[in-house]
Design a protein around this nucleic acid. Sequence first.
DNA 1: CGATCGTTTGACGGTGCTCAATCACCGTGG
DNA 2: CCACGGTGATTGAGCACCGTCAAACGATCG
Lengths: 287, 287
Amino acid sequence: MAVVSLLNVPDEHPAVRDAWFVRRCTVTPASAPGPLSDLLRLLGVQPSETAGELDFLIPLWRVRSGATLLHEGAPAECVHVVRSGTFKSLKTSEDGYEQVLGFAGPGEVLGFEALCRGQQPMSAVALEDSTVYALPVRSLDGWRQGSPALDHALQFALSRQLARVGEITEMMAAVAAEVRLARFLVWLSAHMLECGQSPRRLRLRMSRRDIASLLGVAHETVSRSFGSLVEWGYLRVDNREVEILDLDGLKAFKRSTRGFADQVSRRHGAGTAASPPARHAPVGVAA
Amino acid sequence: MAVVSLLNVPDEHPAVRDAWFVRRCTVTPASAPGPLSDLLRLLGVQPSETAGELDFLIPLWRVRSGATLLHEGAPAECVHVVRSGTFKSLKTSEDGYEQVLGFAGPGEVLGFEALCRGQQPMSAVALEDSTVYALPVRSLDGWRQGSPALDHALQFALSRQLARVGEITEMMAAVAAEVRLARFLVWLSAHMLECGQSPRRLRLRMSRRDIASLLGVAHETVSRSFGSLVEWGYLRVDNREVEILDLDGLKAFKRSTRGFADQVSRRHGAGTAASPPARHAPVGVAA
DNA sequence: CGATCGTTTGACGGTGCTCAATCACCGTGG
DNA sequence: CCACGGTGATTGAGCACCGTCAAACGATCG
């Protein structure tokens, strides 16, 4: 409870127990559970692979925007698979600072980290109204034995999860703040593509502060970095709406690494219109 | 092959095919495979849990210091479990910069990230002479079905792996370089303890440059940060031998987060010789 | 014993953090 | 309807930290 009280939990604080909080920040069972086949589709399994398997129902939860699906320190009860929506994973330190560790979208697994110690090492908060499949830890082994397809899909998803955190680390490792943001945007773009969305038009579900926390910079720096990327013609930004104007250029720019930072500073010194790969004209909005 | 040629592979380059390279940088089968029970012990399974299970032999490899166990871009053939020694995981960018993503010791899984795409997303290099169990991807499903204990142990290890990368992210997210290094040392200390080693006497297997890469700072900054931690009385350092003099103080210090960076800077201003070990209040006021 | 690599220390310049003020947006309540 | 407080985003100014360049020292291995 000591740990839980640090988080944004509807406890103790009187104001949070009424009004909009109860309406908005809740985790409730969905109207109906979902079929296993839908879960498998989410995890990337082809329908042909599940031929002849039993199709049973999986508990489905509805998580409203702002609600905390997983509480840091809470016991491990369910492993979740995001069906729709977006989540952020975070750790809260004693002084209340929220360290964002990653973002999760459809098909991603949440809460698996808790199995080894029996309690959640991090929290998960919905960034928009979302739905998740809930796989009780106790049922997990049985379900996996009953459905080889589910077993494979989970292995697959965990493998992908591990590969993704490598990408997260790469983002934070970049020297310049603009490069970090560029890597983040390219990463996000790739994931929107995987989800069948447009890779150029991004609707950011997270605040600047969340992005800043993930990238390890101040949130003002994120604002300024957005400004720079816009000025250099890579983006068009309107609050949380981001349109990538030059995805290839952005991918080239994000490769700037330590030891080659001169490429970055060169951008500043030499006119912004000269050095970028292909684009001179400020296609989008002028500063 | 295009990707592989970027790495330190004993191919094409004539110099690497002879002399010390062949002797030192090799991955070879060990003299004999190891029993499954030993693998399960590594992964943290209690012997009692495996009662009545078949004990078969698992291929065991020997990896010499400096050898590359996993090549970025290579096809996924085996999942490895470190039996002894230490590895670093890294991605090599086009310009040759090595981004270290993590370190792995006994009981940790290497190469699982490759399952989802069929090829290694990162390389793994031995930092000392090491041994690893090799679980061929083709045999994996069969072995897991044949041994529920192995199945559970792998799930457990993967969960732990995911929890660990969260810790890595936390390290890189710290503001001040000294805090990052402190977090790294505390992290390392905890893992030495898990492996039955002393949590206070650390023998660093990795270079300053590797640490710097992981923490996202310049390697000179790592040197200077070591100097600061020594000056403040937390450590005693002799090259790669590190003795932690005040583990509790170091743990308190590592909690410094963004938004509370004044704690750090205050350390510099107020005489450096005055503040060190006593550690006034973790989060409270200094001076 | 010599060569190569790793580590340490110094000086300088720049980037990004901190502290602020301002503006836009939203839901609430007058 | 508009005033109001709250949150998030943007922009500016100042300064400290850290990255870069450079050189010296130390360790390791052939």
